[in-house]
Write a protein that binds this DNA or RNA. Structure first.
Lengths: 163, 163
DNA sequence: ATTAGATACATGCACATGCATCTAATATTT
DNA sequence: AAATATTAGATGCATGTGCATGTATCTAAT
């Protein structure tokens, strides 16, 4: 082959997969242990709670890591569970206006006790401060700049930092 | 009041998820476009190719991100496809000794043309050298130390970082 | 106003994953 | 040696995910 990945590239690729799987599995296991829904549900609930005036489903899709069909089904389950309401959108009869219910807000607050604690124990307490910015900038460099989902996530991260 | 994750912690958690999903999806999409199996298959083939004398299935399980039942089924598919052979282990009649076939080696070599190229284009060309070591060390800090097989790769990455 | 194309969301299907459990073989305890 | 525990691997089931496609609605060019 013309060019061959160096050992640092290999380390990044391997570590990205391992770190993601280990951290994700810990989150999911702890949430399950507390009889709470998955982290993906938390992210949806939080996005909807921040959107006081409601949110179009396609906008939520852009801000989440769900693809469209999968989000559609997930929202349906959340509606069935009374966490979210779906109304026809005012200006576009194809669309759905999503809103979090009081029950949904209560569940999100409950989840935060576990979810936020995991962010502390699994990330904040583990990454030495010397590597914080390198980790953040390095991960960001792997994602296209104009990635709308990234911007949405980062905005929500900044907002949540203000709690 | 309890401690609350700071914005850098939040950014790491969000970016870890986004970066992993984006990079993974790119890998899988390009492999599929080339009518090749998934990256997970590549990793198995490569592990078996390096183990000249064959490898126990439970050892492969330890070195991979598969859980046991999932690896069991994946190996079965690879055996059905003629990429891997399964023999009863010499010293333990419960066990399976796995070996890659010539066909398997040929497929791995074919996959490498795409897989290796993706490591270059999606990682090596994207991460600025200023953030290489921070990214590697930061990701490593998220993984328990006793993930032994990582240490070799990590050390060689650190060595090359000193060049 | 009609029609071609785009967009929003839903649904069906194939396959992957996580988890519990089963069988067979080995290791340990007494 | 018998009983018990542990380990290797397979299998069943529920759920999650990606992808193709379907239906309704909207937009824009004629």
């Amino acid at each position: 082959m013309d060019r061959k990945p160096n050992s640092q590239t290999t380390a990044i690729w391997v570590l990205l997969n391992i770190a993601h799987k280990r951290v994700t599995q810990t989150f999911e296991a702890e949430l399950k242990r507390a009889h709470l829904p998955s982290a993906a549900w938390y992210d949806i609930l939080w996005a909807l709670e921040r959107a006081e005036e409601g949110m179009r489903q396609n906008e939520l899709e852009r801000q989440s890591l769900f693809d469209q069909p999968n989000l559609s089904r997930t929202i349906k389950r959340m509606v069935d569970d009374g966490l979210v309401t779906q109304c026809p959108a005012a200006t576009d009869r194809r669309g759905r206006e999503l809103r979090i219910t009081e029950e949904g807000k209560a569940l999100r607050a409950e989840m935060w006790k576990v979810y936020g604690g995991l962010m502390l124990s699994e990330i904040e307490d583990k990454v030495p401060s010397a590597h914080l910015s390198g980790l953040i900038e390095g991960l960001a460099s792997l994602v296209p700049d104009k990635d709308e989902k990234l911007q949405g996530k980062l905005n929500s991260a900044r907002d949540s930092a203000k709690n």
